[in-house]
Amino acid sequence: MKKLFLPALAVVFFVSESLFVELWPKHLWYEQYVFVPRFLLIFLLFVTIYGTRTHGMVYGVIFGLLYDVVYTEILGVYMFAFPLIAYIAAKVMKWFHTHLIVACFLSMVFISVLEFYVYGIQLLIGKTTMSFEQFYADRLLPTLLVNALFLLVCSYPLKQRLVKMYEREE
């Protein structure tokens, strides 16, 4: 039962992104702005920071692949990005103390990194013609705002859960 906890949580985060976008009231800012929920990335980073790097990277590969197959239908983009970000995050955490504020700050940084990376790839393969200013104002800032709100609400319970779980394992 305990072993199933982490995968189940990952699935919940995976599905929650799609649910969030779908259930958001569409007359509220939905058409002008693009805000992308990056809950799964936040989850992966927290697992990397409070758990182990291996877990972060393995979940990154699996759920990155799921993300590509189910949502975007362009294979490889997230499957490559998620584990790489988890790896870099683990490296960076050697310089910092493990603290909730640091974790949240890192999450915000890596969400921007991921947004830029995906924007770059979309430009490269010609699936978008969005200009940089448009990307910055209509996409990046709303995305950061939404995820900051999510962190404000969910980061503490998520951290508590993960810490408790990894303590028990030891």
Partner: peptide, 15 residues
């Protein structure tokens, strides 16, 4: 019934 949406909205698709 729509059961999902592409959360990164580079391509607007629904499932």
């Amino acid at each position: 019934t729509v059961i999902g949406r592409n959360p990164d909205r580079w391509q607007e698709t629904v499932i």
